[in-house]
Each structure stands twice: as structure tokens, then as C-alpha cells.
């Protein structure tokens, strides 16, 4: 009795088809004209067209959405990593007054529903004049991304033996030199994974980014949910826009495939 015999490729196959079918349908639609989408029904585009993508890349109303989203996501990743790295080091190496409470408090912010924060954030960022800027969304998303980064990084850092720190200090390294020259290269994969997860959770979030922007920093999610025009919904362009939001994930997913579970489980797998 071989344990491999328990595994059925058919189950995996069906599951993957179930996952891919809706995405395939979106992809299929993005290559069709609106006339074809509404008129005929086919598994493949009859008249293959890139028109929908051309529309997105030439209309500032569309492509600015991607640029805006990218901007706040990148700012957010940089802020989150910059503050989370030293904090995660502290949590993984030292005990100090209130460390457990602080660690728990961080977790509650990862779990907090954005809906609770939408209204106060709107007022807070309006009152300090950041409403409708990249900074508002980037800072708002630190609410869940900083706790996430601290937790994931701490999970990676605890895997590095403490003797390395001590040896480096004995050899005369200062804290900053040690951290930059020795410690960061050791947890490079952890930093990469954390950056990926910050990127992703900021990229997929809709409610806060939509509430905190109106015109200048409007995110792609907000653009997509407001596409109903006088002539109805432009399905082809909407499908193309959806496909383009999936692309960043596809580009990097291969490199983090072995750490996906770890990232989602806050570094605890």
C-alpha cells in the first residue's frame, strides 16, 4: 500500500478547473468587442481584438487608476518595512515592558474591519489635508500592513540563531552595521516575502482606498466600481481592467510559492 495511491490527480484537476474557469471567462471577454459580448456566446473570441486594452492604456481615466494604486502601494510597502524591521527584531530578541500586550494590540489591528475605520479615516485625513493623496491611502493601509509585517518578519527572525548577533557584537560591529551587513542578508527571503504580502494586501483592498480618494489619487478599484456610464457598462473594458489587476500577482507568485502559507498565517507555519 503506497501512500501515493491515496492521491487522486482527478480531484486536483477538477479543483483547478473550478478556480480557472471564471478567470478564463474574464480573459476571454477582455479580447472581445462589446457587440460580440452582448450579441453572441462563445468560448473563444470570434474576432480577437486588443481594443479594450488599448482603451485602458490610452485613456488617462483608466491608466491613472493603475498609476495611483501602484504609487500608494509602493509608499505603503516602504513605510511598513522600514518601521517593522527594527520592531520585529526587538520582538524576536528581547523581552521588555508590555511586549506581549503590544504584540497582541498589533494583531487586533490586522483583524480590524476596514469598515469601522472608513469614517474616522475620512475625517482624520480630511482634517490634516491629506484627503485624495497617495499618502492618505498609504498611511491608512499601514493599519493592517505594519502589524502583518511585524508578525511575518518576527517569524523569520526567530529562525536566526542568537549566537550570530552576539558574535557580531563581540567582533565590534555596531548595531546598525550588524543589522545592515549581517542580519538583513540572512533574512533576505523573509523581507521579500513580507514586501510581497504588504504589496498584495494593499493592492487588493477596496473600501479604504475608495473612501480616501476622489479624483487625483483615485485607485483602480474605485475606477472599476464607478464605470457605469450613460450607455451602460462597458463590459469589455471592465474585463480587461480586471485582468490587468491580476497581472502583478501572477508576475511574482512563482518566487514566493513556498512562503504563501507562511505569509497568510502571519509567519506562523
Amino acid at each position: 500500500m503506497n501512500k501515493k495511491s491515496y492521491k487522486s490527480p482527478i480531484v486536483m484537476f477538477i479543483y483547478i478547473v473550478f478556480l480557472m474557469l471564471p478567470i478564463y471567462w474574464l480573459l476571454n471577454m477582455s479580447f472581445k468587442t462589446n457587440v460580440e459580448i452582448l450579441g453572441t456566446f462563445s468560448m473563444f473570441p470570434n474576432k480577437f481584438t486588443l481594443h479594450n486594452y488599448v482603451t485602458i492604456f490610452t485613456d488617462p481615466g483608466w491608466y491613472m487608476g493603475y498609476i495611483n494604486s501602484m504609487s500608494y502601494v509602493v509608499i505603503n510597502v516602504i513605510i511598513s518595512l522600514a518601521v517593522a524591521l527594527p520592531a520585529a527584531y526587538a520582538f524576536s530578541r528581547y523581552t521588555f515592558m508590555g511586549d506581549k500586550h503590544l504584540f497582541f494590540w498589533l494583531l487586533t489591528n490586522r483583524m480590524a474591519p476596514p469598515a469601522v475605520f472608513a469614517l474616522p479615516f475620512f475625517q482624520l485625513y480630511s482634517s490634516i489635508g491629506l484627503f485624495d493623496t497617495y499618502w492618505a491611502v498609504a498611511l491608512a493601509h499601514t493599519l493592517f500592513n505594519v502589524p502583518l509585517s511585524v508578525w511575518i518578519l518576527e517569524g523569520f527572525m526567530r529562525g536566526v540563531p542568537k549566537e550570530i548577533d552576539e558574535t557580531a557584537y563581540i567582533d565590534g560591529y555596531s548595531f546598525f552595521k550588524f543589522f545592515r551587513k549581517i542580519f538583513m542578508p540572512l533574512i533576505a527571503s523573509g523581507i521579500g516575502v513580507t514586501a510581497f504580502f504588504c504589496f498584495m494586501f494593499s493592492w487588493v483592498e477596496l473600501l479604504l482606498s475608495r473612501t480616501l480618494t476622489s479624483v487625483n489619487a483615485k485607485s483602480i478599484g474605485a475606477t472599476m466600481t464607478r464605470t457605469v456610464s450613460a450607455t451602460g457598462i462597458d463590459w469589455g473594458v471592465l474585463a480587461a481592467a480586471g485582468i490587468l489587476t491580476i497581472v502583478p500577482g501572477i508576475l511574482v507568485i512563482y518566487f514566493v510559492r513556498n512562503h504563501i502559507a507562511k505569509g497568510f498565517a502571519l509567519g506562523r507555519v
Binding site: M12, P22, I253
Partner: peptide, 24 residues
Amino acid sequence: FCLVVIALPLLIPWNVVGTIWQIF
């Protein structure tokens, strides 16, 4: 291969997930 493919839905923006099923 399976890891990459099954992780894909997790990386799609939530509003796009809505859009996908709205269309589907």
C-alpha cells in the same frame, strides 16, 4: 504548479473577484 495556480484567486483584488462573478 498546483501551489502557484491555487494561490491565484488569493491575489486578485477583492472588487475584481466581485466583478468576475458578476460577469460569470
